[in-house]
Amino acid sequence: MTIGKIAGAGNSTVEQLYQLVDKEPLLGSAYYRLRQTDFDGESTYSKIILLTFYPEAKHYSDLSPNPVAGGKTVLRLGGMQAGTKVRVSLVHMSGKIIRRFEVSANQIGAVEWEMSGLDSLASGVYSVLISTEQFNETLRLIIP
């Protein structure tokens, strides 16, 4: 099934970036690949990737593993609009901000961010403050 076509830039020595949005994605999981066709009619295919789409998904958040294992955990967020700016702060129970970062939700409205190097922090319960234009949330993170 073809979801769209984009005209290429032709012969170029500069990297070209192209973008196409599937305006009618399948619900659940779908596999995608790109086909590039040269002027001589020869085609090559990209590797196949799996994307998951749930348009009615409610907001979700998760830290796993929690307690932290191996000095790292993964923050997963979803149910947002694509491109949503997400500000995250790791805060010690004393109120001191230990780390801060900002990420953007991907095309399906999700974030998956690995927080590493946590084994250098003192053991205890930390707060992970998550803030977007639509919501604010606090998760608890245990560092053993």
Rank of each mutant, 00 (worst) to 15 (best):
T2V: 13
G4W: 07
G4H: 05
A7C: 07
A7F: 08
A7M: 10
G8H: 07
G8C: 06
A9Y: 08
A9Q: 12
A9M: 10
A9K: 12
G10H: 09
N11T: 14
S12A: 14
T13W: 08
V14Y: 08
Q19W: 11
L20A: 04
V21P: 01
K23R: 14
K23Q: 15
P25K: 04
G28P: 05
Y32A: 03
R33T: 11
L34W: 15
L34V: 15
L34C: 08
Q36Y: 13
T37Y: 04
D38R: 10
D40V: 05
D40Q: 09
G41K: 10
G41M: 10
G41S: 13
S43K: 07
S43T: 12
T44Y: 07
Y45C: 05
I49L: 09
I49A: 08
I49E: 09
I49M: 08
L50S: 15
L50V: 13
L50Y: 02
L51S: 12
T52N: 10
T52A: 07
T52M: 04
F53K: 03
K58L: 13
H59V: 12
H59A: 11
H59D: 05
S61V: 01
D62W: 08
D62I: 09
L63F: 06
P65Y: 10
N66H: 09
A69T: 13
A69I: 11
A69W: 04
G71H: 04
G71D: 06
K72Q: 15
V74K: 07
L77C: 04
L77Q: 01
L77P: 00
L77E: 06
L77V: 02
G78I: 02
Q81C: 02
A82G: 03
G83W: 02
G83C: 04
K85T: 11
K85E: 12
V86G: 01
R87G: 09
R87S: 15
R87M: 09
V88R: 00
V88Y: 01
V91D: 02
H92P: 00
M93P: 02
S94I: 06
G95A: 08
K96I: 12
I97C: 05
I98S: 01
R99A: 12
R99K: 14
R99W: 07
F101M: 13
F101H: 08
S104P: 00
Q107K: 07
I108T: 15
I108K: 03
G109W: 00
A110K: 08
A110L: 03
V111S: 01
E112T: 11
E114W: 02
S116E: 10
G117R: 05
L118K: 02
L118C: 03
S120H: 10
L121A: 03
S123Q: 14
S123M: 12
Y126S: 02
Y126Q: 01
Y126H: 05
S127P: 00
V128M: 07
L129S: 09
I130A: 02
S131I: 03
T132E: 04
T132Q: 06
E133G: 02
Q134K: 08
Q134N: 09
E137H: 14
T138H: 06
L139P: 02
R140Y: 03
R140M: 09
L141Q: 04
I142A: 11
I143F: 09
I143D: 07
I143A: 06
